[in-house]
Computed example of a mutant assay.
Amino acid sequence: MLVLLPPSETKADGGSGAPLDLAALSFPELNPVRDRLATALAGLDPAPAMAALGLSERQADEVERNARLRETPTMPAIERYTGVLYDALGYGSFTRAQRARAGRRLAVASALFGVVRADDPIPAYRLSGGTVLPGVGGLRGVWRADLEKTLSAADELVIDLRSGPYAALAAIPHAITVKVVTASGAAVSHFNKAHKGRLAAALACAPREPGTVRGVVSIAAAAGLRLVQAGRTALELVVG
């Protein structure tokens, strides 16, 4: 099973790993695009970088962070990304066995790296899925062919928890999507990320890996989460 998480705008600082080595990342077939984007992002002058990334003067340090992304320390992707979903995931409280399962099952969509597994060592950076990068263009056009080929080739159950801008980078025809809804069927927006984080934690920590949608529903139920099938490749996480 591959549980595909959205990234976050915010990243943890620091790290104890060696600087970025694309050869150390999963899905090595994506490295030519990764290298192209890393070079373009690190080489942007401050003013066009801030405009392209939608940053304010108070966020100027994000541009410097990008400029040094090949030099700064790395840490596992699952620890690099922060925010509501990752707080709800609670990776820091996982046991050693649960961390090993998470390393096999969790992956994160990324505007810069396409997709990385939980244990992949990455630096801090700033780049969003909807960015139009000077000298490169829109990221959907950059990523779509290669990323769709990689993700569509996954011969395991794929649970797609990506947000819109990252889902747009690559379609995964066989993936199971999850929508967070209320009991009345209304979409949940404000706490969407937290609920997806809890679901991801349940799937990552389950002693047995599910091979079917029914198995995913059962794992969620054991964790106190209500998943219902809304189509052949669609699930709804009912909350409230």
Results as ranks from 00 to 15, higher is better:
M1Y: 09
L2S: 05
V3Q: 07
P6N: 05
P6L: 12
S8C: 05
E9Q: 06
D13T: 13
A18Q: 12
L20K: 01
A24N: 05
F27Y: 10
E29V: 06
R36D: 03
A38H: 08
L41S: 00
D45F: 04
D45Y: 07
P46E: 10
P48L: 05
A51Q: 15
A51Y: 09
R58Q: 13
Q59P: 00
A60T: 14
E62F: 15
E64S: 09
R65M: 12
T72N: 00
P76A: 09
E79M: 10
Y81M: 03
Y81R: 01
L85W: 06
A88Y: 06
T95P: 15
A97V: 15
A100S: 12
R104L: 08
V108C: 06
D119F: 07
D120S: 03
P121N: 01
R126K: 09
L127N: 03
G130I: 15
L133I: 08
G137R: 09
G137Y: 09
V142F: 04
V142W: 01
W143C: 05
A153V: 12
A154W: 13
R162Q: 01
G164S: 15
G164V: 14
A168T: 04
A168I: 05
A168H: 08
A171K: 13
H174Q: 14
A175K: 11
T177R: 15
T182S: 14
A187T: 11
V188E: 11
V188A: 04
F191A: 12
K193M: 07
K196Q: 10
R198G: 10
L199C: 08
R208H: 11
E209F: 14
T212A: 12
T212N: 01
V213I: 13
V213T: 11
G215I: 07
I219S: 06
I219K: 06
A223K: 01
L235G: 02
L235I: 10
L235W: 04
L237D: 07
